[in-house]
């Protein structure tokens, strides 16, 4: 890592600092980075299983680190997401949504992967800064984190009986 590169989780904290109302759910999952990121970055599969409101995502285009996808929520809403996907990093935005995800290996013998999630419903007011609705966001992120931990666990050991 050069001095110009920032740990993805730290990067997510910086991005969230620039979005009014943004909350962050952060946790260390007891699995290697490669396994955790394989779940998080699987936009057309696992992503829809751990993000509470997502039902289906279809990736339309990938060019370098740029990605464009069509998402449908379980309530039927559609979102045209555009953004960036890099190792350990995903930032997507639609007209009404912001989704940010980051993962980084935890150094040291205990290992594991530090994961952070942020995002929410965009507020479109002339606020001189990006903003999301602050209410309920923390509990949604917490639910997503719980589901993500379950999905990672299931892939490691098989689903619980």
């Amino acid at each position: 890592m050069t001095t110009h590169e920032i740990d993805p989780v730290q990067r997510l904290r910086i991005m969230a600092a620039g979005v009014r109302g943004a909350r962050i759910a952060e946790e260390v999952l007891p699995a290697p980075f490669e396994e955790v990121w394989a779940v998080m970055a699987d936009l057309e599969g696992e992503f829809g299983r751990f993000q509470p409101d997502m039902r289906r995502v279809r990736v339309l285009r990938v060019a370098g680190d740029r990605v464009e996808a069509l998402a449908r929520s379980k309530y039927g809403f559609r979102a045209h997401l555009r953004g960036f996907v890099r190792p350990g990093w995903c930032w997507l935005q639609s007209r009404f949504l912001v989704i940010g995800m980051a993962a980084a290996p935890v150094p040291g013998p205990g290992g594991g992967t530090r994961v952070a999630l942020t995002g929410g419903v965009r507020v479109r007011v002339p606020a001189r800064a990006p903003a999301v609705v602050p209410y309920g966001t923390a509990s949604e992120l917490s639910r997503a984190m719980t589901r993500l931990a379950e999905r990672v666990g299931d892939r490691r050991t098989g689903p619980a009986a």
């Binding site: 110009h4 620039g18 960036f84 930032w91 935005q93 912001v98 965009r122 002339p126």
Partner: peptide
């Protein structure tokens, strides 16, 4: 653009300012 609410511009601004 970031101040106008575009988080993708905010993302690019982060890349731009870091070095």
């Amino acid at each position: 653009a970031a101040r106008a609410g575009n988080t993708l511009a905010l993302h690019q601004l982060l890349d731009h300012l870091t070095p």
